[in-house]
Nucleic acid binder design. Structure first.
Length: 342
DNA sequence: AACAACTCCAACCGCGAAGTC
DNA sequence: TGACTTCGCGGTTGGAGTTGT
């Protein structure tokens, strides 16, 4: 038996809503409230599918909707949230009062994605590292730095120098232009932590109550990045972005591939990365990368962590970790695939 | 002025999750 | 427990409006 249709489609109207239909729907919902979408059209006297009524109400008729163009601030927020959440439009919309998921999705598809993909080289599917970037590179499957997406942001000279010193790189898709580096601020014996935290505290912050997630607003990314650059002097890294997740003392920053490569090739300190217990709820945002510069308590506890996963790019890691766990490489990889598909 | 190409966005569609019986 | 319903989400489409030639 196939799926039952959401409503009896015979004789129902499709296409654009008329002003009369809008008025009928709005009056009915104001009187009877939202919900029962299936029976709503019949009760309200509308020749529309319940689904269509729901969509019309949510996307157009609701009183709390914000009219007018997306502001620059909202645009930045969308870019930032999209970098974190991907195409989870309803989740993004929940951070933009008065905006609907459909509106944001349309705006992204018609404005922002084109703007981002218009970066030289992106259209060919091959991304050369920008020498000077007023628009950051966007890679499919990758993440775009919010800081880098700031319209008025221009990279400082030392950043450009660092970029220029990097060998020309070719990225193929899928790839990620940023690595997530996660450090426990409280555990880092670093004199500039207070300064960094002060910068962070300048940011507008909000809490997504649905999952108790702390979202950083748009602010002071330049100052934070400057601090972080000086914080990691030995790597001569370019710190691209301080990410939006700040939860208690956990801080997530992103560093460029060149930085990660530098860490990996240094042969010093930790080379392990991306650990997480399988039985914990987590997402890729919270992946951890350790290195010889930023050491955290979590890093020290690496050996004690249960069923850690590692990024596939670390060829040796699969084998060593699976041995530690008494699993085969294939089992571990299957674990990850299962999780990823779940 | 006419046509083509493009943009934008409202609306549709199919699917999966959650709820109900 | 399973069949069915309802709801919500994200991808896609259609067409009105705009811009270019």
């Amino acid at each position: 038996m196939g799926r039952a249709p959401c409503c009896e489609k015979v004789g129902l109207k499709k296409g654009r809503w008329t002003a009369e239909e809008d008025e009928t729907l709005a009056k009915y919902i104001q009187t009877n409230g939202e919900g029962s979408w299936r029976s709503l059209p019949k009760n309200a006297g509308l020749l529309r599918c319940g689904k269509s009524c729901r969509l019309r109400w949510i996307n157009y008729l609701r009183a709390d909707l914000k009219r007018g163009n997306i502001s620059a601030e909202e645009e930045n927020t969308i870019v930032k949230l999209h970098a974190s959440f991907g195409n989870r439009w309803s989740l993004i919309a929940s951070h933009l009062p008065g905006r609907t998921d459909n509106e944001i999705k349309n705006y992204w598809n018609s404005h922002l994605s084109r703007k981002i993909y218009s970066f030289p080289g992106a259209s060919a599917g091959i991304m050369d590292t920008p020498k000077v970037a007023s628009i950051p590179p966007k890679l499919k499957g990758g993440r775009t730095s919010r800081w880098a997406m700031n319209k008025n942001k221009t990279y400082t000279q030392n950043v450009n120098d660092a970029i220029n010193q990097r060998p020309k790189q070719t990225f193929t898709q899928p790839n990620s232009d940023f690595t997530v580096l996660d450090a426990d601020v409280a555990d880092v014996n670093e004199p500039r932590i207070e300064e960094l935290e002060a910068e962070v505290n300048k940011c507008d912050r909000s809490v997504d109550e649905s999952n108790d997630e702390d979202i950083l607003g748009l602010c002071q990314m330049e100052g934070i990045s400057d601090i972080l650059e000086s914080w990691l002097p030995e790597t001569t890294c370019v710190v691209w972005d301080l990410s939006e997740e700040i939860d208690n003392n956990d801080m997530v920053v992103r560093v460029s591939d060149a930085c990660r490569d530098k860490m990996a090739s240094s042969g010093e300190g930790y080379s392990c990365s991306s650990s997480m217990a399988l039985d914990q709820h987590w997402d890729w945002e919270s992946v951890i990368e350790f290195n010889n510069v930023v050491e955290s308590e979590a890093c020290n506890n690496w050996e004690q962590q249960e069923k850690p996963l590692t990024w596939p790019w670390e060829d040796d890691a699969w084998e060593s970790q699976s041995k530690n766990l008494g699993e085969t490489d294939t089992q571990m990889q299957n674990d990850m695939v299962d999780w990823f598909l779940s």
